[in-house]
Design a protein around this nucleic acid. Structure first.
Length: 566
RNA sequence: UGUCCUGUGGUGUAAUUGGCAACACGUCUGAUUCUGGAUCAGAAGAGUCCAGGUUCGACCCCUGGCAGGACAACCA
Protein backbone atom coordinates (compact mmCIF):
# COMPACT_ATOMS: atom_id res chain seq x y z
CA UNK A 1 0.00 0.00 0.00
CA UNK A 2 2.79 2.35 0.87
CA UNK A 3 4.41 1.48 -2.45
CA UNK A 4 1.24 2.29 -4.29
CA UNK A 5 1.15 5.66 -2.69
CA UNK A 6 4.63 6.36 -3.82
CA UNK A 7 4.01 5.63 -7.46
CA UNK A 8 0.41 6.44 -8.05
CA UNK A 9 -1.01 9.90 -8.16
CA UNK A 10 -4.23 8.57 -6.76
CA UNK A 11 -3.23 7.10 -3.46
CA UNK A 12 -3.84 3.40 -3.53
CA UNK A 13 -5.74 3.21 -6.79
CA UNK A 14 -4.14 1.80 -9.91
CA UNK A 15 -4.10 3.25 -13.38
CA UNK A 16 -5.28 1.01 -16.21
CA UNK A 17 -1.77 -0.13 -17.10
CA UNK A 18 -1.03 -1.07 -13.52
CA UNK A 19 -4.26 -3.01 -13.44
CA UNK A 20 -3.25 -4.89 -16.59
CA UNK A 21 0.18 -5.61 -15.22
CA UNK A 22 -1.09 -6.81 -11.87
CA UNK A 23 -3.49 -9.10 -13.64
CA UNK A 24 -0.67 -10.39 -15.86
CA UNK A 25 1.47 -10.98 -12.81
CA UNK A 26 -1.33 -12.75 -11.00
CA UNK A 27 -2.06 -14.99 -13.96
CA UNK A 28 1.57 -15.37 -14.95
CA UNK A 29 0.78 -14.36 -18.53
CA UNK A 30 4.21 -12.83 -18.95
CA UNK A 31 6.08 -15.38 -16.95
CA UNK A 32 6.03 -13.05 -13.98
CA UNK A 33 8.06 -10.49 -15.87
CA UNK A 34 7.56 -6.79 -16.55
CA UNK A 35 9.82 -5.41 -19.21
CA UNK A 36 9.12 -2.07 -20.86
CA UNK A 37 11.02 0.21 -23.15
CA UNK A 38 11.22 3.88 -24.00
CA UNK A 39 11.68 4.13 -27.78
CA UNK A 40 12.56 7.67 -28.92
CA UNK A 41 13.43 8.44 -32.50
CA UNK A 42 16.71 10.37 -32.42
CA UNK A 43 15.43 13.13 -34.65
CA UNK A 44 14.53 15.80 -32.10
CA UNK A 45 14.69 16.89 -28.52
CA UNK A 46 12.65 15.39 -25.73
CA UNK A 47 9.87 17.45 -24.18
CA UNK A 48 7.65 17.26 -21.14
CA UNK A 49 5.32 14.89 -22.99
CA UNK A 50 8.18 12.46 -23.44
CA UNK A 51 8.94 12.90 -19.76
CA UNK A 52 5.53 11.47 -18.97
CA UNK A 53 6.28 8.45 -21.13
CA UNK A 54 9.75 8.03 -19.63
CA UNK A 55 8.41 8.22 -16.09
CA UNK A 56 5.65 5.80 -17.02
CA UNK A 57 7.88 3.18 -18.63
CA UNK A 58 10.72 3.35 -16.16
CA UNK A 59 8.32 3.84 -13.28
CA UNK A 60 6.24 0.78 -14.11
CA UNK A 61 9.37 -1.32 -14.44
CA UNK A 62 10.66 -0.09 -11.10
CA UNK A 63 7.36 -0.60 -9.36
CA UNK A 64 7.03 -4.19 -10.51
CA UNK A 65 10.66 -5.19 -10.19
CA UNK A 66 11.11 -5.25 -13.92
CA UNK A 67 13.36 -3.57 -16.41
CA UNK A 68 13.06 -0.76 -18.87
CA UNK A 69 15.22 -0.51 -21.98
CA UNK A 70 16.24 2.59 -23.81
CA UNK A 71 15.78 1.88 -27.48
CA UNK A 72 16.52 4.37 -30.18
CA UNK A 73 14.04 3.86 -32.95
CA UNK A 74 16.44 4.69 -35.74
CA UNK A 75 14.93 3.25 -38.88
CA UNK A 76 15.03 6.42 -40.95
CA UNK A 77 18.64 7.46 -41.57
CA UNK A 78 17.71 10.68 -43.35
CA UNK A 79 16.24 12.17 -40.21
CA UNK A 80 18.32 10.82 -37.40
CA UNK A 81 21.74 11.58 -35.99
CA UNK A 82 24.02 11.05 -33.01
CA UNK A 83 23.60 14.59 -31.77
CA UNK A 84 20.03 13.75 -30.86
CA UNK A 85 21.07 10.43 -29.39
CA UNK A 86 23.38 12.18 -26.98
CA UNK A 87 20.87 14.85 -26.04
CA UNK A 88 18.20 12.24 -25.40
CA UNK A 89 20.53 10.18 -23.25
CA UNK A 90 21.45 13.22 -21.20
CA UNK A 91 17.84 14.21 -20.68
CA UNK A 92 16.75 10.78 -19.50
CA UNK A 93 19.68 10.49 -17.13
CA UNK A 94 19.00 13.96 -15.81
CA UNK A 95 15.40 12.98 -15.13
CA UNK A 96 16.84 10.31 -12.88
CA UNK A 97 16.41 7.09 -14.83
CA UNK A 98 18.94 4.39 -15.54
CA UNK A 99 18.74 1.89 -18.39
CA UNK A 100 21.93 0.23 -17.19
CA UNK A 101 23.57 -1.68 -20.04
CA UNK A 102 20.34 -1.89 -21.99
CA UNK A 103 20.88 0.83 -24.54
CA UNK A 104 19.58 -0.59 -27.78
CA UNK A 105 18.91 0.57 -31.29
CA UNK A 106 16.37 -0.66 -33.78
CA UNK A 107 19.29 -0.62 -36.19
CA UNK A 108 20.89 -3.37 -34.09
CA UNK A 109 18.20 -5.64 -35.49
CA UNK A 110 18.42 -4.87 -39.18
CA UNK A 111 19.94 -8.30 -39.79
CA UNK A 112 17.27 -10.21 -37.84
CA UNK A 113 14.56 -8.10 -39.39
CA UNK A 114 15.84 -8.95 -42.85
CA UNK A 115 15.77 -12.64 -42.06
CA UNK A 116 12.27 -12.41 -40.65
CA UNK A 117 11.13 -10.61 -43.77
CA UNK A 118 12.52 -13.48 -45.82
CA UNK A 119 10.38 -15.83 -43.74
CA UNK A 120 7.27 -13.80 -44.52
CA UNK A 121 8.11 -13.71 -48.21
CA UNK A 122 8.64 -17.47 -48.24
CA UNK A 123 5.27 -17.94 -46.60
CA UNK A 124 3.67 -15.76 -49.23
CA UNK A 125 2.88 -13.07 -46.65
CA UNK A 126 5.00 -10.35 -48.22
CA UNK A 127 6.00 -9.32 -51.70
CA UNK A 128 8.16 -6.92 -53.62
CA UNK A 129 6.09 -4.18 -55.21
CA UNK A 130 7.41 -2.07 -58.08
CA UNK A 131 4.87 0.72 -57.82
CA UNK A 132 6.03 4.23 -57.09
CA UNK A 133 5.19 6.00 -53.87
CA UNK A 134 2.47 7.99 -55.56
CA UNK A 135 0.95 4.90 -57.11
CA UNK A 136 0.89 3.11 -53.78
CA UNK A 137 -0.68 6.08 -52.07
CA UNK A 138 -3.27 6.44 -54.82
CA UNK A 139 -4.02 2.74 -54.77
CA UNK A 140 -4.57 2.59 -51.06
CA UNK A 141 -8.09 3.97 -51.30
CA UNK A 142 -9.72 5.91 -48.50
CA UNK A 143 -11.13 4.78 -45.19
CA UNK A 144 -14.46 4.09 -46.83
CA UNK A 145 -13.23 3.06 -50.28
CA UNK A 146 -11.23 -0.16 -50.64
CA UNK A 147 -7.75 0.02 -52.12
CA UNK A 148 -6.62 -1.51 -55.41
CA UNK A 149 -4.60 -4.68 -55.58
CA UNK A 150 -1.01 -4.17 -56.62
CA UNK A 151 -0.16 -5.75 -59.99
CA UNK A 152 2.90 -7.23 -58.27
CA UNK A 153 0.99 -8.80 -55.44
CA UNK A 154 1.06 -12.31 -56.86
CA UNK A 155 4.69 -12.27 -57.85
CA UNK A 156 6.18 -15.75 -57.35
CA UNK A 157 7.98 -16.36 -54.08
CA UNK A 158 11.31 -17.08 -55.77
CA UNK A 159 11.17 -13.84 -57.70
CA UNK A 160 10.30 -11.91 -54.52
CA UNK A 161 13.21 -13.51 -52.73
CA UNK A 162 15.59 -12.68 -55.51
CA UNK A 163 14.41 -9.09 -55.83
CA UNK A 164 14.54 -8.55 -52.08
CA UNK A 165 18.11 -9.78 -52.05
CA UNK A 166 19.00 -7.48 -54.91
CA UNK A 167 17.33 -4.58 -53.13
CA UNK A 168 19.59 -5.28 -50.19
CA UNK A 169 22.64 -5.39 -52.42
CA UNK A 170 21.87 -1.94 -53.71
CA UNK A 171 21.02 -2.82 -57.26
CA UNK A 172 18.00 -0.53 -57.41
CA UNK A 173 17.59 3.21 -57.00
CA UNK A 174 15.71 4.88 -54.15
CA UNK A 175 11.97 4.59 -54.45
CA UNK A 176 11.98 2.04 -57.22
CA UNK A 177 10.61 -0.84 -55.18
CA UNK A 178 9.34 -1.69 -51.74
CA UNK A 179 8.52 -4.80 -49.80
CA UNK A 180 4.91 -4.92 -48.69
CA UNK A 181 3.04 -7.20 -46.34
CA UNK A 182 0.28 -9.07 -48.13
CA UNK A 183 -2.76 -8.49 -45.96
CA UNK A 184 -6.01 -6.98 -47.18
CA UNK A 185 -6.44 -4.07 -49.55
CA UNK A 186 -10.09 -3.83 -48.56
CA UNK A 187 -9.53 -3.69 -44.83
CA UNK A 188 -11.39 -0.86 -43.09
CA UNK A 189 -8.15 -0.36 -41.20
CA UNK A 190 -5.87 1.51 -43.57
CA UNK A 191 -2.80 0.11 -41.90
CA UNK A 192 -3.70 -3.35 -43.04
CA UNK A 193 -3.87 -2.44 -46.75
CA UNK A 194 -0.57 -4.09 -47.70
CA UNK A 195 1.64 -1.78 -45.64
CA UNK A 196 5.19 -1.08 -46.73
CA UNK A 197 7.81 -2.98 -44.74
CA UNK A 198 10.97 -1.89 -46.52
CA UNK A 199 11.97 1.03 -48.66
CA UNK A 200 15.17 1.66 -50.56
CA UNK A 201 17.28 4.54 -49.24
CA UNK A 202 20.87 4.89 -50.24
CA UNK A 203 21.61 6.93 -47.16
CA UNK A 204 24.29 6.96 -44.51
CA UNK A 205 23.01 5.70 -41.20
CA UNK A 206 24.44 7.08 -37.97
CA UNK A 207 25.26 3.59 -36.73
CA UNK A 208 25.27 1.15 -39.61
CA UNK A 209 26.93 3.61 -41.95
CA UNK A 210 26.53 2.31 -45.51
CA UNK A 211 25.93 -1.30 -44.68
CA UNK A 212 22.26 -1.08 -45.58
CA UNK A 213 20.38 0.62 -48.34
CA UNK A 214 16.99 -0.79 -47.42
CA UNK A 215 15.41 0.32 -44.20
CA UNK A 216 12.44 -1.14 -42.31
CA UNK A 217 9.37 0.93 -41.59
CA UNK A 218 8.22 1.62 -38.05
CA UNK A 219 5.43 -0.94 -38.01
CA UNK A 220 7.66 -3.71 -39.23
CA UNK A 221 10.55 -2.87 -36.97
CA UNK A 222 8.81 -2.02 -33.76
CA UNK A 223 6.99 -5.14 -32.70
CA UNK A 224 9.84 -7.38 -33.75
CA UNK A 225 12.30 -5.23 -31.82
CA UNK A 226 10.05 -5.55 -28.80
CA UNK A 227 10.08 -9.30 -29.25
CA UNK A 228 13.86 -9.45 -29.64
CA UNK A 229 14.27 -7.46 -26.45
CA UNK A 230 11.81 -9.62 -24.55
CA UNK A 231 9.49 -6.72 -23.94
CA UNK A 232 6.31 -7.71 -22.16
CA UNK A 233 4.36 -4.44 -22.25
CA UNK A 234 4.96 -2.19 -25.21
CA UNK A 235 3.44 1.11 -24.18
CA UNK A 236 2.80 3.84 -26.71
CA UNK A 237 0.46 6.74 -27.32
CA UNK A 238 -3.09 6.65 -28.60
CA UNK A 239 -2.39 7.37 -32.24
CA UNK A 240 -0.86 3.92 -32.52
CA UNK A 241 -4.08 2.26 -31.49
CA UNK A 242 -5.01 1.59 -35.12
CA UNK A 243 -1.56 0.10 -35.67
CA UNK A 244 -2.10 -2.60 -33.09
CA UNK A 245 -3.78 -5.07 -35.47
CA UNK A 246 -0.73 -4.79 -37.71
CA UNK A 247 1.61 -5.15 -34.74
CA UNK A 248 -0.18 -8.38 -33.92
CA UNK A 249 -0.40 -9.56 -37.51
CA UNK A 250 3.39 -9.59 -37.89
CA UNK A 251 3.79 -11.48 -34.63
CA UNK A 252 1.15 -13.98 -35.73
CA UNK A 253 2.74 -14.60 -39.10
CA UNK A 254 6.12 -15.11 -37.51
CA UNK A 255 4.54 -17.66 -35.23
CA UNK A 256 5.53 -15.79 -32.10
CA UNK A 257 3.51 -16.99 -29.16
CA UNK A 258 6.14 -17.48 -26.49
CA UNK A 259 7.34 -14.21 -24.92
CA UNK A 260 5.03 -12.33 -27.16
CA UNK A 261 4.97 -8.58 -26.53
CA UNK A 262 1.65 -6.75 -26.34
CA UNK A 263 1.01 -3.16 -27.22
CA UNK A 264 -0.98 -0.81 -24.96
CA UNK A 265 -1.85 2.79 -25.65
CA UNK A 266 -2.31 5.76 -23.33
CA UNK A 267 -3.19 9.39 -23.94
CA UNK A 268 -0.24 11.65 -24.46
CA UNK A 269 0.28 14.69 -22.29
CA UNK A 270 -1.02 18.04 -23.45
CA UNK A 271 -0.25 21.22 -21.57
CA UNK A 272 -2.07 24.49 -21.95
CA UNK A 273 -0.24 27.72 -22.78
CA UNK A 274 2.32 25.84 -24.85
CA UNK A 275 2.76 23.70 -27.93
CA UNK A 276 4.24 20.24 -27.96
CA UNK A 277 4.62 19.02 -31.51
CA UNK A 278 8.14 18.61 -32.81
CA UNK A 279 7.23 20.57 -35.89
CA UNK A 280 5.95 23.59 -34.00
CA UNK A 281 8.80 23.51 -31.53
CA UNK A 282 11.20 23.47 -34.44
CA UNK A 283 9.38 26.41 -35.98
CA UNK A 284 9.85 28.40 -32.78
CA UNK A 285 13.55 27.68 -32.79
CA UNK A 286 14.16 28.28 -36.47
CA UNK A 287 12.01 31.38 -36.54
CA UNK A 288 14.05 32.76 -33.63
CA UNK A 289 11.00 33.17 -31.48
CA UNK A 290 13.10 31.52 -28.79
CA UNK A 291 16.85 31.27 -28.47
CA UNK A 292 17.16 27.53 -28.95
CA UNK A 293 15.88 24.13 -27.94
CA UNK A 294 16.93 24.80 -24.38
CA UNK A 295 15.38 28.24 -24.18
CA UNK A 296 13.81 28.39 -20.71
CA UNK A 297 10.42 29.06 -22.28
CA UNK A 298 10.44 25.81 -24.22
CA UNK A 299 8.58 22.77 -22.88
CA UNK A 300 11.60 20.66 -23.76
CA UNK A 301 13.39 18.81 -21.01
CA UNK A 302 16.49 20.88 -21.71
CA UNK A 303 14.42 24.06 -21.60
CA UNK A 304 12.85 23.12 -18.29
CA UNK A 305 16.26 22.24 -16.94
CA UNK A 306 17.65 25.62 -17.91
CA UNK A 307 14.55 27.28 -16.53
CA UNK A 308 15.39 25.76 -13.15
CA UNK A 309 12.96 22.87 -12.91
CA UNK A 310 14.24 19.97 -10.85
CA UNK A 311 14.08 16.37 -12.05
CA UNK A 312 12.04 15.50 -8.98
CA UNK A 313 9.44 18.15 -9.74
CA UNK A 314 8.96 16.73 -13.23
CA UNK A 315 8.66 13.22 -11.88
CA UNK A 316 6.07 14.32 -9.36
CA UNK A 317 4.23 16.14 -12.12
CA UNK A 318 4.23 13.06 -14.34
CA UNK A 319 2.78 11.14 -11.48
CA UNK A 320 0.09 13.68 -10.74
CA UNK A 321 -1.19 13.97 -14.30
CA UNK A 322 -2.20 10.34 -14.24
CA UNK A 323 -2.42 7.81 -17.04
CA UNK A 324 -5.58 7.07 -18.98
CA UNK A 325 -6.93 6.76 -22.48
CA UNK A 326 -8.86 9.95 -22.89
CA UNK A 327 -7.50 13.10 -24.43
CA UNK A 328 -6.49 15.60 -21.80
CA UNK A 329 -5.12 19.07 -21.35
CA UNK A 330 -3.18 19.59 -18.17
CA UNK A 331 -3.18 22.99 -16.57
CA UNK A 332 0.23 24.66 -16.58
CA UNK A 333 -0.62 25.65 -13.01
CA UNK A 334 -0.07 22.04 -11.97
CA UNK A 335 3.47 22.05 -13.34
CA UNK A 336 4.11 25.34 -11.56
CA UNK A 337 2.68 23.92 -8.37
CA UNK A 338 5.09 20.99 -8.59
CA UNK A 339 8.20 23.11 -8.95
CA UNK A 340 7.12 25.53 -6.23
CA UNK A 341 6.47 22.68 -3.85
CA UNK A 342 9.96 21.29 -4.44
CA UNK A 343 11.78 24.60 -4.35
CA UNK A 344 9.90 25.95 -1.36
CA UNK A 345 11.24 23.00 0.55
CA UNK A 346 14.72 22.94 -0.89
CA UNK A 347 15.85 26.27 -2.30
CA UNK A 348 17.99 28.52 -0.09
CA UNK A 349 16.56 32.01 0.43
CA UNK A 350 18.33 35.09 -0.65
CA UNK A 351 17.38 38.76 -1.01
CA UNK A 352 17.47 40.30 -4.44
CA UNK A 353 15.85 43.53 -5.52
CA UNK A 354 14.60 43.31 -9.06
CA UNK A 355 13.39 46.85 -9.65
CA UNK A 356 15.40 48.91 -7.19
CA UNK A 357 14.65 52.25 -5.64
CA UNK A 358 17.05 53.87 -3.19
CA UNK A 359 16.17 54.09 0.47
CA UNK A 360 18.19 56.09 2.99
CA UNK A 361 17.90 55.67 6.74
CA UNK A 362 18.49 59.16 8.03
CA UNK A 363 19.28 58.27 11.62
CA UNK A 364 21.52 55.28 10.85
CA UNK A 365 25.20 56.07 11.42
CA UNK A 366 27.11 56.95 8.30
CA UNK A 367 29.68 54.31 7.42
CA UNK A 368 28.34 51.72 9.85
CA UNK A 369 27.83 48.18 8.56
CA UNK A 370 26.11 45.40 10.48
CA UNK A 371 26.31 41.74 9.54
CA UNK A 372 22.82 40.43 10.07
CA UNK A 373 21.83 36.84 10.61
CA UNK A 374 19.43 35.52 8.03
CA UNK A 375 17.92 32.08 7.84
CA UNK A 376 19.15 30.08 4.88
CA UNK A 377 15.83 28.32 4.58
CA UNK A 378 12.96 28.69 7.04
CA UNK A 379 11.65 25.30 5.88
CA UNK A 380 14.92 23.78 7.03
CA UNK A 381 16.11 25.68 10.08
CA UNK A 382 18.81 23.06 10.57
CA UNK A 383 20.66 24.60 7.64
CA UNK A 384 21.45 27.59 9.79
CA UNK A 385 22.17 31.17 8.92
CA UNK A 386 23.88 33.32 6.37
CA UNK A 387 25.22 36.83 6.92
CA UNK A 388 23.77 39.85 5.15
CA UNK A 389 25.33 43.32 5.41
CA UNK A 390 23.11 46.22 6.44
CA UNK A 391 23.93 49.90 6.13
CA UNK A 392 22.53 53.40 5.86
CA UNK A 393 21.79 53.29 2.15
CA UNK A 394 19.73 50.45 0.79
CA UNK A 395 17.63 49.49 -2.17
CA UNK A 396 14.13 48.14 -1.96
CA UNK A 397 11.62 47.04 -4.55
CA UNK A 398 9.85 49.88 -6.34
CA UNK A 399 6.58 48.04 -5.93
CA UNK A 400 7.03 48.01 -2.17
CA UNK A 401 6.52 51.74 -1.91
CA UNK A 402 3.47 53.79 -2.79
CA UNK A 403 2.98 57.44 -2.18
CA UNK A 404 -0.79 57.12 -2.27
CA UNK A 405 -1.48 53.60 -1.10
CA UNK A 406 -4.84 51.94 -1.64
CA UNK A 407 -6.81 50.46 1.22
CA UNK A 408 -5.04 47.20 1.92
CA UNK A 409 -1.51 48.11 0.98
CA UNK A 410 0.68 46.68 3.74
CA UNK A 411 3.96 47.96 2.46
CA UNK A 412 5.82 51.23 2.77
CA UNK A 413 4.21 54.61 2.26
CA UNK A 414 4.66 58.06 3.76
CA UNK A 415 4.29 57.83 7.52
CA UNK A 416 3.85 54.06 7.57
CA UNK A 417 6.08 51.60 9.31
CA UNK A 418 7.32 48.27 7.98
CA UNK A 419 9.99 45.76 8.84
CA UNK A 420 13.08 45.29 6.79
CA UNK A 421 13.52 41.54 6.82
CA UNK A 422 16.12 40.38 9.35
CA UNK A 423 16.80 44.05 10.23
CA UNK A 424 14.77 46.87 11.75
CA UNK A 425 11.44 48.56 11.68
CA UNK A 426 11.60 51.68 9.57
CA UNK A 427 9.26 54.58 9.03
CA UNK A 428 9.03 56.61 5.86
CA UNK A 429 9.61 60.29 6.50
CA UNK A 430 9.74 61.77 3.03
CA UNK A 431 10.47 61.13 -0.62
CA UNK A 432 12.81 62.81 -3.04
CA UNK A 433 11.72 63.20 -6.65
CA UNK A 434 13.35 64.23 -9.85
CA UNK A 435 12.01 66.91 -12.14
CA UNK A 436 9.63 64.48 -13.85
CA UNK A 437 8.17 63.57 -10.52
CA UNK A 438 9.73 60.14 -10.31
CA UNK A 439 10.70 58.99 -6.88
CA UNK A 440 14.47 58.81 -6.69
CA UNK A 441 14.92 58.28 -3.00
CA UNK A 442 12.87 57.27 -0.02
CA UNK A 443 13.94 58.84 3.27
CA UNK A 444 13.29 56.82 6.41
CA UNK A 445 14.20 56.56 10.06
CA UNK A 446 14.73 53.31 11.91
CA UNK A 447 14.12 52.21 15.46
CA UNK A 448 17.32 50.68 16.89
CA UNK A 449 15.26 48.81 19.48
CA UNK A 450 13.51 46.70 16.92
CA UNK A 451 16.39 44.71 15.53
CA UNK A 452 15.47 41.28 14.31
CA UNK A 453 15.66 38.71 17.06
CA UNK A 454 15.12 41.25 19.85
CA UNK A 455 12.28 40.98 22.30
CA UNK A 456 8.79 41.39 20.88
CA UNK A 457 8.07 44.84 19.56
CA UNK A 458 5.05 46.39 17.95
CA UNK A 459 3.56 44.53 15.05
CA UNK A 460 3.69 45.76 11.50
CA UNK A 461 1.77 44.45 8.52
CA UNK A 462 4.57 44.39 6.01
CA UNK A 463 8.04 42.95 5.75
CA UNK A 464 10.27 44.03 2.91
CA UNK A 465 13.35 42.54 1.36
CA UNK A 466 16.26 44.86 0.69
CA UNK A 467 19.86 44.98 -0.27
CA UNK A 468 22.70 47.20 0.99
CA UNK A 469 23.71 49.65 -1.73
CA UNK A 470 27.42 49.49 -1.07
CA UNK A 471 27.49 45.70 -0.97
CA UNK A 472 24.98 44.72 -3.62
CA UNK A 473 25.91 42.68 -6.62
CA UNK A 474 24.52 43.73 -9.92
CA UNK A 475 22.90 40.87 -11.78
CA UNK A 476 21.08 40.24 -15.00
CA UNK A 477 17.69 38.81 -14.28
CA UNK A 478 15.67 37.12 -16.96
CA UNK A 479 12.02 37.18 -16.08
CA UNK A 480 10.28 34.40 -17.95
CA UNK A 481 6.58 34.02 -18.37
CA UNK A 482 4.45 31.61 -20.37
CA UNK A 483 5.38 31.55 -24.05
CA UNK A 484 1.78 31.91 -25.21
CA UNK A 485 -0.88 34.21 -23.91
CA UNK A 486 -3.81 31.93 -24.57
CA UNK A 487 -4.51 28.47 -23.15
CA UNK A 488 -4.77 26.83 -26.57
CA UNK A 489 -2.23 28.44 -28.91
CA UNK A 490 -3.16 26.16 -31.80
CA UNK A 491 -6.72 27.36 -31.79
CA UNK A 492 -6.49 30.21 -34.28
CA UNK A 493 -8.84 31.84 -36.74
CA UNK A 494 -8.71 30.90 -40.41
CA UNK A 495 -5.44 32.01 -41.89
CA UNK A 496 -3.98 32.50 -38.43
CA UNK A 497 -0.96 30.81 -36.99
CA UNK A 498 -0.13 29.54 -33.52
CA UNK A 499 2.73 31.97 -33.44
CA UNK A 500 0.23 34.82 -33.44
CA UNK A 501 -0.47 33.82 -29.87
CA UNK A 502 3.04 34.23 -28.61
CA UNK A 503 3.23 36.26 -25.45
CA UNK A 504 5.26 39.36 -26.30
CA UNK A 505 6.26 39.63 -22.65
CA UNK A 506 7.44 36.05 -22.25
CA UNK A 507 10.91 37.35 -21.51
CA UNK A 508 11.89 40.56 -19.80
CA UNK A 509 15.49 41.21 -18.97
CA UNK A 510 16.23 43.55 -16.09
CA UNK A 511 19.22 44.43 -13.99
CA UNK A 512 18.70 43.77 -10.33
CA UNK A 513 20.73 43.96 -7.15
CA UNK A 514 21.55 40.86 -5.17
CA UNK A 515 22.92 40.28 -1.71
CA UNK A 516 26.69 39.74 -1.79
CA UNK A 517 26.52 36.10 -0.73
CA UNK A 518 25.47 35.28 -4.26
CA UNK A 519 28.87 36.20 -5.64
CA UNK A 520 29.99 32.63 -6.17
CA UNK A 521 26.70 31.14 -7.28
CA UNK A 522 27.30 28.50 -9.93
CA UNK A 523 25.26 27.77 -13.04
CA UNK A 524 22.36 25.50 -12.19
CA UNK A 525 22.11 26.63 -8.56
CA UNK A 526 18.60 27.45 -7.47
CA UNK A 527 17.41 30.06 -5.00
CA UNK A 528 14.30 31.61 -3.74
CA UNK A 529 14.55 35.35 -4.09
CA UNK A 530 12.69 36.29 -0.97
CA UNK A 531 9.14 37.45 -1.76
CA UNK A 532 9.55 37.35 -5.55
CA UNK A 533 10.15 33.89 -6.89
CA UNK A 534 12.44 31.01 -7.62
CA UNK A 535 15.49 31.66 -9.71
CA UNK A 536 18.37 29.65 -11.01
CA UNK A 537 21.78 30.61 -12.30
CA UNK A 538 21.93 30.46 -16.08
CA UNK A 539 24.88 28.86 -17.90
CA UNK A 540 25.53 32.32 -19.39
CA UNK A 541 26.50 33.42 -15.90
CA UNK A 542 30.13 33.97 -14.92
CA UNK A 543 31.76 35.01 -11.65
CA UNK A 544 31.89 38.67 -12.60
CA UNK A 545 28.47 38.86 -14.20
CA UNK A 546 25.65 36.92 -12.70
CA UNK A 547 22.68 35.85 -14.79
CA UNK A 548 19.52 34.46 -13.22
CA UNK A 549 16.49 32.85 -14.81
CA UNK A 550 13.16 33.10 -13.11
CA UNK A 551 11.86 29.57 -12.78
CA UNK A 552 8.57 30.64 -11.29
CA UNK A 553 7.18 33.53 -9.34
CA UNK A 554 5.91 32.99 -5.84
CA UNK A 555 2.15 32.81 -5.50
CA UNK A 556 1.10 36.40 -5.12
CA UNK A 557 -2.25 36.97 -3.47
CA UNK A 558 -1.66 40.70 -3.41
CA UNK A 559 -1.28 40.81 -7.19
CA UNK A 560 -4.32 38.60 -7.52
CA UNK A 561 -6.32 40.95 -5.35
CA UNK A 562 -5.26 43.94 -7.42
CA UNK A 563 -6.16 42.14 -10.64
CA UNK A 564 -9.57 41.10 -9.48
CA UNK A 565 -10.33 44.69 -8.48
CA UNK A 566 -9.48 45.76 -12.00
C1' U B 1 -21.65 6.60 -45.87
C1' G B 2 -15.62 2.99 -42.96
C1' U B 3 -12.83 1.08 -38.72
C1' C B 4 -11.03 1.87 -33.92
C1' C B 5 -10.85 4.67 -29.25
C1' U B 6 -12.92 7.99 -25.57
C1' G B 7 -17.07 10.75 -22.80
C1' U B 8 -17.19 11.69 -14.39
C1' G B 9 -16.79 19.29 -10.80
C1' G B 10 -13.10 24.69 -14.32
C1' U B 11 -8.70 20.91 -15.15
C1' G B 12 -6.77 15.98 -14.40
C1' U B 13 -7.44 11.29 -12.20
C1' A B 14 -10.39 7.73 -8.82
C1' A B 15 -14.64 4.88 -7.15
C1' U B 16 -12.74 -2.08 -3.46
C1' U B 17 -15.45 -4.44 -10.55
C1' G B 18 -23.48 -3.09 -9.05
C1' G B 19 -24.11 -0.13 -2.87
C1' C B 20 -26.41 7.08 -4.19
C1' A B 21 -19.12 10.07 -6.46
C1' A B 22 -13.25 10.56 -3.76
C1' C B 23 -8.33 12.83 -4.34
C1' A B 24 -5.13 16.57 -6.52
C1' C B 25 -4.53 21.29 -9.05
C1' G B 26 -7.37 25.73 -9.53
C1' U B 27 -11.06 29.08 -7.12
C1' C B 28 -13.06 31.43 -2.58
C1' U B 29 -13.17 32.27 3.04
C1' G B 30 -10.76 32.57 7.74
C1' A B 31 -6.45 31.81 11.09
C1' U B 32 -1.39 32.38 11.40
C1' U B 33 3.25 34.44 9.72
C1' C B 34 9.71 38.96 10.31
C1' U B 35 8.31 36.19 2.67
C1' G B 36 0.79 39.28 0.88
C1' G B 37 5.34 32.75 0.34
C1' A B 38 4.73 28.42 3.25
C1' U B 39 1.45 26.31 6.87
C1' C B 40 -3.39 25.31 9.18
C1' A B 41 -8.83 25.23 9.15
C1' G B 42 -12.96 25.52 6.08
C1' A B 43 -16.22 26.46 1.62
C1' A B 44 -18.21 26.45 -3.16
C1' G B 45 -18.24 23.41 -7.40
C1' A B 46 -20.16 17.19 -10.80
C1' G B 47 -25.18 13.58 -9.67
C1' U B 48 -21.17 10.74 -13.96
C1' C B 49 -22.84 12.93 -22.62
C1' C B 50 -28.33 11.82 -23.76
C1' A B 51 -32.66 8.38 -23.94
C1' G B 52 -34.49 3.86 -22.75
C1' G B 53 -33.75 -1.08 -20.32
C1' U B 54 -32.08 -4.89 -16.48
C1' U B 55 -31.83 -4.60 -11.00
C1' C B 56 -34.09 -3.60 -4.37
C1' G B 57 -29.99 -0.56 -6.16
C1' A B 58 -26.21 1.58 -12.20
C1' C B 59 -20.49 6.00 -13.23
C1' C B 60 -20.17 0.62 -13.68
C1' C B 61 -24.21 -4.21 -17.22
C1' C B 62 -27.61 -4.11 -22.06
C1' U B 63 -29.85 -1.33 -26.38
C1' G B 64 -30.09 3.03 -29.30
C1' G B 65 -28.39 7.77 -30.06
C1' C B 66 -25.06 12.14 -29.61
C1' A B 67 -20.28 14.40 -29.12
C1' G B 68 -14.93 14.43 -29.40
C1' G B 69 -10.43 12.08 -31.14
C1' A B 70 -7.29 8.76 -34.21
C1' C B 71 -6.36 6.40 -39.05
C1' A B 72 -5.61 7.22 -46.13
C1' A B 73 4.24 9.10 -45.47
C1' C B 74 8.41 4.63 -49.16
C1' C B 75 7.65 9.42 -41.02
C1' A B 76 7.82 7.59 -36.10
Amino acid sequence: MKEDNKHSGQGGSLNFLEQIIEKDLAMATTGGRVHTRFPPEPNGYLHIGHAKSICLNFGLAAKYNGKCNLRFDDTNPTKENVGYVNAIREDIRWLGFDWEEREYYASDYFGELFDMAVVLIRQGDAYVCDMSGEEIAAGRGTPSVPGKISPWRERPVEENLELFERMRKGEFPDGSRVVRAKIDMASPNMHLRDPVMYRIMHAHHHRTANKWCIYPMYDWAHGQSDYLENITHSICTLEFEVHRPLYNWFLDKLGISQNRPRQFEFARLNLNYTVMSKRKLLELVEGRYVKGWDDPRMPTISGLRRRGYTPASIRVFSDKVGVAKRENVIDMALLEYCIREDLNRNAPRVMTVINPVKLVIENYPEGQVEELQALRNPEKPEEGYRKVPFSKTLYIEQGDFMEDPPKKFFRLSPGSEVRLKYAYLIRCESVVKDQQGNITEIRCTYDPGTKSGMAPTRKVKGTLHWVSAAHALEAEIRLYDRLFEVPDPENVAQGGNFKDNINPASLQIVRGLAEPGLRDAMPGERFQFERTGYFCVDPDSSPGSLVFNRTSSLRDSWAKMKDSQG
